[in-house]
C-alpha cells in the first residue's frame, strides 16, 4: 500500500489526500499531508492532541478550507474546479453535493436536538438525497436497528445517553451509504463506560466493508479493527503502516514515545 503508488493492477483510491497544508494564522496545522485510502480499507489516525489529526478529517469533509495541496474523492477534486484553465472554489451547492458522498461523525455527536432520532436520519435522506418519505422511514429504522437504537426512534436526542446519541450519529452518517465514513474522535466525549458500545458499532461497520478514516485515541480499537494506522505529530505523518505491526512494533522513536504515554495494548 504505497502512498504515492501508481500501481497498475490496483484501482483508483476512494480518497486521495495529496500534500495538504493548512495554517491557522501562524500555526501550521497540516504540513504537507498525503494519504490514500483504498475501497473497504479502515485507516486509524492517531497522535497527540494538536497533531492535526482532527483538522485532517475536517479538511477532507470540506468543513475547513485547505491552504495548499489537493484532496480527491473517487478521483474528483474536492472544493475546487477548473474553469478556462483557472482553479477557483466551487459554489456552495456543489460542495454540498460532494459532502453527500461522505459520512461524518463528530466528537460531540451534533445531532439536531429539535428533531427526533428518526427525523435526524429521514430529513438527511429526504433533503440531501431525494429519498421518498416511506423509503427514508424504512431506511432510518433499518440503520437504527443496526446500531441497536431501533426502539428509541421517536425519542428526542436529549433523552438519550451519550453512547446512544453517538450511535444515532453514526446511523445518520451511514444511512445514505456514503463512499467513505469519517470519524473525528467519536468516543472522546463519552463516559468510559459508554465507549465500548460505540466502538462495537464501528467495528461492525468495518467488518461490513465500509471505507473508514477514524481519528481516535483508542489504541486497542486501532490495533484490532484498522487495516492501516497513521501516526501524526506536529502536522505531519511520522509513521504509517499495517495497524497491528505498527502498534506492536513501532519503527520511530516518536511513535514509541507516544504509545508509552497513552498506555500499552
Amino acid at each position: 500500500m504505497s502512498v504515492n503508488g501508481v500501481s497498475h493492477e490496483k484501482q483508483e483510491p476512494v480518497l486521495r489526500v495529496a500534500r495538504v497544508r493548512k495554517n491557522y494564522g501562524s500555526f501550521t496545522a497540516l504540513d504537507g499531508v498525503s494519504l490514500d485510502v483504498e475501497s473497504g480499507e479502515v485507516v486509524a489516525v492517531i497522535g497527540p492532541s494538536g497533531s492535526g489529526k482532527s483538522t485532517l478529517v475536517r479538511c477532507i469533509d470540506q468543513l475547513v478550507g485547505i491552504d495548499g495541496g489537493a484532496i480527491y474523492l473517487d478521483g474528483e477534486l474536492l472544493g475546487y474546479e477548473r474553469r478556462r484553465g483557472t482553479l477557483r472554489p466551487m459554489k456552495n451547492a456543489r460542495i454540498a453535493a460532494q459532502r453527500r458522498r461522505m459520512g461524518m461523525v463528530f466528537q460531540n455527536f451534533n445531532l439536531f436536538p429539535h428533531l427526533t432520532v428518526r427525523e435526524n436520519i429521514t430529513e438527511v435522506l429526504r433533503r440531501s438525497h431525494g429519498v421518498s418519505k416511506p423509503d427514508a422511514d424504512r431506511r432510518a429504522l433499518e440503520v437504527l436497528d443496526r446500531v441497536g437504537i431501533g426502539e428509541k426512534a421517536d425519542h428526542y436526542p436529549r433523552r438519550l445517553s451519550g453512547g446512544q446519541q453517538q450511535r444515532v450519529a453514526i446511523a445518520r452518517a451511514v444511512a445514505p451509504s456514503p463512499r467513505i465514513m469519517l470519524f473525528d474522535e467519536p468516543t472522546s466525549s463519552l463516559d468510559p463506560a459508554l465507549v465500548s458500545e460505540v466502538l462495537t458499532v464501528m467495528q461492525d461497520l468495518a467488518e461490513a466493508g465500509h471505507t473508514m478514516v477514524v481519528v481516535t485515541h483508542e489504541i486497542r480499537f486501532a490495533h484490532d479493527v484498522a487495516d492501516r494506522c497513521v501516526f501524526m505529530r506536529q502536522g505531519r505523518i511520522v509513521e504509517e503502516g499495517p495497524a497491528k505491526r505498527m502498534l506492536t512494533g513501532p519503527a520511530t522513536d516518536e511513535l514509541r514515545d507516544f504509545l508509552s504515554h497513552v498506555g500499552s495494548l
Partner: peptide, 15 residues
Amino acid sequence: DAGQTEASKAVGFGS
C-alpha cells in the same frame, strides 16, 4: 451551537 451548522453542512444540507 456552532456544531449544528457543521453537522448540517456535513450531511449535505445547503445554506
